[in-house]
Design a protein around this nucleic acid. Structure first.
Length: 644
RNA sequence: GCCACUGUGGCUUAGAGGUAUAGCGUCGCCUUGGUAAGGCGAAGGUCGGGGGUUCAAUUCCCCCCAGUGGCUCCA
């Protein structure tokens, strides 16, 4: 007999009992447990336990469990695909956040193909195939997958030559896999294929083009429904839809793709954000400049944009004195401002800021509403400082970013330390020592701040490592919001220096590139998705919509509007002869923070009845009180509707 | 740039080889109405653009443009 510890309870079984039997014995049949953690190792139900051990159940709706289910569902997908398309070669099919995908080397398929595959998957679920693990040596593995060069390549790279690995079999289908998996295909009922796309083998465009099929899979119907609801909700919060409804921006085919145009309402929101940023950065000791949209080739050669960032820039314009490029970044111009006069150690850190607009030649297929555009405006700044000053500047920038996000009410973000990739020499400035030291430096700063962060290779800027602040969009996709980049290359490329305390010219000038509010475009997209367009009052294009009940109330309503306007409140008046209910319905689309309803009562008592955007109501507020209160709410940049 | 899908009046949308729905909005008239659709009427579309097949195309085919979801990339 052996002793198995399950959830702190000890059980005795014969040696060789399977994980599944223990689970059934302890938890019963309907436990939603799909695998087990045996002494910390994920194991299938079929895994046989020989010795004393500790066993923890893995539930289908847990983090680990959902990954196992998704992974198994990817296998099911591959089973259906290889049956329907015998020439298709499965490559890799991992679980990912919210679902899974599988990449196949095959002819592209459309929606009809997707439906067909889904149908076949459901048939296999009903057949309830057992999913069986088998251990194989390398020769046997190579035999099985001899017609699939992708699997062979995986074996060569991942498994090595000496040992074997495992395969999983369900019906006639076999896949190379470490596992674990669910015991049989009936566990995969709650799945849905979502989309297809194209991907390259190993993510390299030089390699074969593969068909990627995406799906989602959950352990219960409720989880699947919940996710579908979430997606629906995200669609409602889509900044493109809200932006159109609120007339914030447009993208016009005749003007050009990826070139958003800010409409009057959007311009109000944007300039409020700008005002806030100017005030904040004033208080942090920044100075402001304006630089041109174009610059000469020599400038961008000096900065390294040519060639490192050439793909991201628009082609040059030939002028009588050489080639000019539209700037894709402001930094080279700021470096020239730094160079414009002799700097002393007393001038450092020098923080040069600009609400600059840059143009980047993004691939057409990547453009997406305001999230990815070709014209970007940002409150960009470059901090010129000594190495000793870097830490405190980086810290104060992280704190500044937090201050910003707090005002806007954002909390769905995390930090990322973005490192270079020594393999990709052409992408980064080739100074390995500097990369190593600056990366360690940033890592130390983050460790000292005691903040959680993840490290990701190959995400650095070409001139140095960075700390990015990553957000999730409404649909769960991760995007960079803010960035703090440490540039060790500029000082040499632009011959930056200062006079130090001993009167000697010192060339150790480090540059920090930072943009805590992302770009106006991306920030607006986040803001709209986060608030569903219900902007805090200070950002609302229309702060108060005045609505009359009948003609008799027009005069007082005009007075209300004028007084609010005088107080600096953005207010509109609807004195049309529609019914009150209809007027409320019409104006809701624009999402004013408040509607002020004016009828007999209000005229008589010089009050307003206020209906907040969230439907809350407060009647008979003396007009002067309302004006004072909303003025305070706006100037405090309050997140909530405080008046009702 | 690559793959798939989508493209019908300002917006949302029905439809199908014989030049097209409906709702909202707009405009006009009536209604003077207390918190998410009061009534009547009118205008508005060469069905994204161009080519082809056909007696006939908005519907089928090809090319282009734009959008969406991915890949790559990235603020």
């Amino acid at each position: 007999m052996i002793r198995i510890q399950v959830n702190a309870e000890e059980h005795e079984y014969y040696s060789g009992i399977s994980v599944g039997e223990v689970v059934r014995n302890v938890f019963g049949k309907k436990s939603n447990i799909i695998a087990g953690l045996v002494d910390g190792e994920e194991r299938d139900f079929s895994h046989e336990v020989e010795d004393d051990c500790n066993l923890e159940p893995i539930y289908g709706n847990s983090n680990e469990g959902s990954y196992i289910i998704r992974h198994s569902c990817a296998h099911l997908l591959a089973q259906a695909v290889t049956e329907l398309f015998p020439d298709a070669k499965p490559t890799i099919g991992p679980p990912v956040d919210n679902g899974f995908y599988y990449d196949f080397f095959m002819e592209p398929i459309g929606d009809d193909g997707l439906k067909m595959i889904e149908k076949r998957m459901n048939e296999h679920i009903r057949k309830n195939h057992s999913i069986i693990r088998e251990e194989m040596d390398n020769n046997a593995l190579r035999e099985i997958f001899s017609d699939n060069k992708f699997k062979i390549q995986i074996m060569n790279e991942k498994i090595g030559n000496e040992m074997g690995s495992s395969i999983y079999r369900q019906g006639d289908f076999v896949d190379l896999c470490r596992g674990p998996h669910v015991p049989n295909t009936s566990y995969l009922r709650w799945f849905k294929l979502t989309s297809t796309s194209q991907a390259y083998w190993k993510g390299d465009r030089e390699n074969e083009s593969l068909v990627r099929i995406y799906g989602m899979c959950y352990s219960t119907k409720e989880e699947l429904k919940e996710r579908q609801k979430q997606i629906q909700e995200a669609v409602k919060r889509d900044h493109k839809k809200i932006g159109k409804e609120m007339e914030l921006y447009m993208i016009d085919e005749m003007i050009g793709r990826g070139l958003p145009v800010w409409l009057p309402n959007g311009e109000i929101m944007k300039s409020e954000i700008e005002k806030f940023a100017l005030e904040t950065e004033d208080s942090y000791g920044y100075v402001r400049v304006t630089t041109p949209a174009l610059g000469k080739r020599e400038l961008f050669e000096a900065s390294g944009h040519l060639p490192h960032y050439a793909d991201g820039m628009y082609p040059p314009m030939e002028m009588d004195d050489g080639e000019y490029y539209i700037k894709a970044m402001n930094c080279p111009m700021h470096h020239r401002i730094y160079k414009n006069k002799k700097r002393s150690y007393r001038d450092l850190p020098l923080r040069i800021a600009e609400y600059g607009t840059v143009y980047r030649n993004e691939l057409s297929g990547t453009l997406a509403g305001l999230l990815r555009v070709r014209m970007l405006s940002m409150n960009d700044a470059h901090i010129y400082c000594t190495l000793d000053q870097v830490a405190s500047e980086v810290e104060s920038n992280i704190l500044m970013a937090k201050e910003y996000y707090d005002t806007f009410g954002f909390d769905n973000y995390h930090l990322r330390l973005s490192l270079w990739d020594e393999e990709k020499k052409d992408k980064y400035i080739d100074q390995p020592e500097n990369w190593k030291s600056t990366q360690n430096y940033l890592r130390e700063i983050l460790d000292n701040l005691d903040m959680d962060y993840e490290e990701v290779k190959g995400e650095a800027a070409f001139y140095g490592p960075k700390i990015d602040i990553q957000f999730k969009t409404a649909l769960g996709r991760e995007e960079s919001m803010a960035t703090i980049q440490l540039d060790f290359a500029a000082k040499e490329r632009f011959e930056l220096s200062f006079m130090d305390e001993t009167g000697i010219e010192n060339g150790e000038v480090f540059v920090i590139h930072r943009a805590p509010l992302s770009t106006h475009e991306r920030f607006a997209a986040f803001l709209l998705e986060n608030t569903a367009g219900n902007l805090p009052t200070w950002l609302s294009p229309i702060q108060v919509q005045v609505i009359t009940i009948s003609e008799k109330h027009k005069q007082y309503a005009k007075e209300v509007k004028n007084l609010l306007e005088t107080a600096g409140v953005r207010v509109k008046l609807d004195e049309s002869d529609n019914t009150i209910g209809k007027k409320i319905r019409i104006h809701r689309k624009m999402r004013p923070a408040y509607m002020a309803i004016i009828g007999d009562e209000e005229v008589k008592t010089r009050t307003v009845s206020i209906r907040a955007r969230d439907g809350k109501q407060r009647n008979d507020i003396p007009l002067n009180d309302f004006i004072a209160d909303i003025f305070a709410e706006i100037t405090n940049r309050s997140k909530s509707l405080d008046i009702v």
